[in-house]
Simulated scan of single mutants.
Amino acid sequence: MMATKTKLQETRIKKGLSQEQIANMLGMTQSNYSRKENGSSKISQREWEKLSKTLEVPMEDIFENDDSHIFIFQDHSTGNYKGINNIYSIPEHIEQLLETQRKYIDKLEEENQTLREEINTLKRS
């Protein structure tokens, strides 16, 4: 799981806005926005830009990188041996594959957002 977007959450709260209000401004559901803010769903570059405009702050004030290159696994050993945390680095070729997938996901998220905006425009017509 990715880390909570603390700077984003703190800024939203300081502005007196709920997750639902931000979600409506961005054209998404509250649960979708919540997943992005709590780090379980990636925030695309375009969404960071929209959040910056919506919250009326520079992107640097809220942006927190999603990229993570280290996984920590909890061993659940039994007996007299106590479990430890092991840290594993991701091989370069896997990082490249992940980056390609992240870019593709960002592109799909942008396309989805564009379609949502078009649908909302048609509903208002």
Rank of each mutant, 00 (worst) to 15 (best):
T4Y: 05
T4V: 12
K5F: 07
K7F: 00
K7M: 09
I13Q: 12
S18L: 00
S18V: 01
Q19D: 05
E20L: 00
E20R: 06
Q21V: 14
I22S: 02
A23E: 05
M25A: 08
T29I: 01
S31N: 08
S31G: 04
N32I: 03
Y33K: 06
R35S: 06
K36V: 08
G39D: 11
G39P: 05
S40Y: 08
K42L: 14
K42C: 10
I43A: 03
Q45T: 15
E49K: 04
S52E: 03
E56P: 00
E56G: 06
V57D: 01
V57W: 11
D61G: 00
F63W: 10
F63D: 04
N65S: 13
D66L: 02
D67M: 00
S68Y: 06
I70H: 11
I72F: 09
G79T: 09
G79E: 11
N80G: 00
N85I: 01
N85E: 14
N86D: 03
Y88G: 03
S89P: 02
P91F: 04
P91Q: 00
E92N: 09
E92H: 06
I94A: 10
I94L: 14
Q96Y: 03
Q96I: 13
E99S: 12
E99H: 03
K103R: 04
K103L: 10
K103A: 05
I105H: 02
I105D: 08
L108A: 12
L108K: 11
L108R: 13
E109W: 13
N112C: 11
Q113E: 07
Q113I: 13
T114C: 04
R116F: 12
R116T: 10
E117P: 00
E118S: 09
I119H: 14
N120V: 04
K123C: 01
K123V: 14
